[in-house]
Design a protein around this nucleic acid. Structure first.
Lengths: 238, 238
DNA sequence: GCAAAATCTTTACACTGTCAAAATGGCATC
DNA sequence: GATGCCATTTTGACAGTGTAAAGATTTTGC
């Protein structure tokens, strides 16, 4: 689409059939398939997803095209179609991977300590994951480019939400039945999620830098994040 | 790019020169320019921005292309280039309009009442604006598609931030000097902004519906929003 | 073995952004 | 009023994109 002409084009040339050790006879018969580059890839689906993640974090969401992914994986431009149907399908499966990675990171951060310590550790792990995988995190919430009805994506996103609800419940010293919430519980979940997701998005969109710039020199984003979490609610105590 | 084949194509045919009342002689000389469709539009820049907003809210961000905007405005596909340079330029100017609309909506909502009432009214106006202009709000925070160095966009976004900081300061009964913040002030601003922006994004991305579905039947999004704002901070009072 | 299915490539088409050249008409200057 | 400059708009071209259809190749089921 030539939308972003700055995107990497160095590794454009197809790598398949680059060094072709076939005999002359074979060369007549089979012009492409070689030992190190068989016609059937074998695990192309996973290879494409890996390539997609690489392209996404290197060139950003605008550079994440079906053809760019195919190039990165060294296959023809239409190969991804068979595995994902269309671009939305590929993005959705990639987002599902993102949610699973995210869930794993959150699980790893939520190991020990008081409920308050766990909450802070989870919040920091949340932001840290998004900073480590900015493209992926952005994709995970770009609903217009995803098909949330895909089972893999739907399920992985639901697991993420359940983990969030459980964490909020723990910090309130109560067990949250994720399928039926009270308004108060839902408010607490919405508050925690909105605040951390909002901070993360503003951070990735470079908006938090505007606040940081107005703070005393040397103040870090981490300090701002902690100050936000510890900030009292907007209503003064009467 | 044919990325979203569902996008509206009904109004494709150029409207210029549709009804051409020119004489035969004129028709020989000038094949396109007519009374109601002169070669020089006169106010094409504004017309393009209006068309862009229309296309954005109708077909979403993926459907907002230079050529679609030109079609909507009834001019040739390359006409926007002269006024905006490239697609990023058009999107940035459109985002600037969004910020100005947003600022006006916030100003209108912040008229009377106690600081608490003003805060609640502002928060509701914030979400209401985003719901009324979902495409525009999404564009305003899609940094990778914008050029924040454009003066119009930069300034309008700064005005929005200043208004936010002022509002938070008022709810804390203090005057906030937007250029130099204390860590506590910054934390309060980050908290308010993150929470409302996060809620808005989750709402537009259809994530809040998941919470609402788990609430007692009949509960509205507005109730959830209020419950979130009134929810106590996650740390229990020791 | 062999037909069928799965996988991958090739080809084609409509769409996109952007550039360059041509066309058009407003406007200041003579 | 004529003229020439210049902003504005159109036309045409090119490379890149998604996706559909048809062909090529390999695996798999029987």
């Amino acid at each position: 689409m030539a939308r972003n002409p700055k995107q990497n084009k160095a590794n454009r040339p197809r790598t398949r059939g680059a060094a072709r050790p076939a005999t002359a006879k074979q060369a007549v018969r089979r012009t492409r398939a070689t030992a190190d580059s068989p016609y059937h890839h074998g695990a192309l689906r996973d290879a494409l997803l890996q390539a997609a993640e690489k392209v996404l974090e290197r060139d950003g969401l605008p550079g994440l095209t079906l053809r760019a992914v195919a190039r990165e994986a060294g296959v023809s431009h239409a190969a991804p179609t068979h595995h994902f149907g269309d671009l939305t399908g590929l993005l959705s499966e990639l987002a599902a991977i993102g949610y699973r990675q995210f869930n794993e990171a959150m699980r790893a951060a939520n190991v020990s300590g008081t409920p308050q310590e766990k909450g802070m550790a989870s919040a920091k792990a949340y932001v840290a994951y998004a900073q480590a995988h900015p493209g992926l995190y952005g994709l995970m919430f770009r609903t217009e480019r995803l098909d949330m009805k895909r089972p893999a994506l739907h399920e992985a996103a639901n697991v993420a939400f359940a983990g969030l609800a459980r964490g909020v419940g723990a910090s309130r010293h109560e067990h949250i039945e994720a399928e039926a919430l009270s308004l108060e519980q839902a408010g607490a979940i919405a508050r925690a999620w909105s605040m951390i997701h909002g901070f993360t998005m503003l951070l990735l969109d470079n908006r938090m830098a505007n606040i940081l710039r107005r703070l005393p020199k040397g103040t870090t984003m981490d300090q701002l994040f902690e100050a936000m979490l510890k900030s009292p609610p907007p209503r003064p105590p009467v």
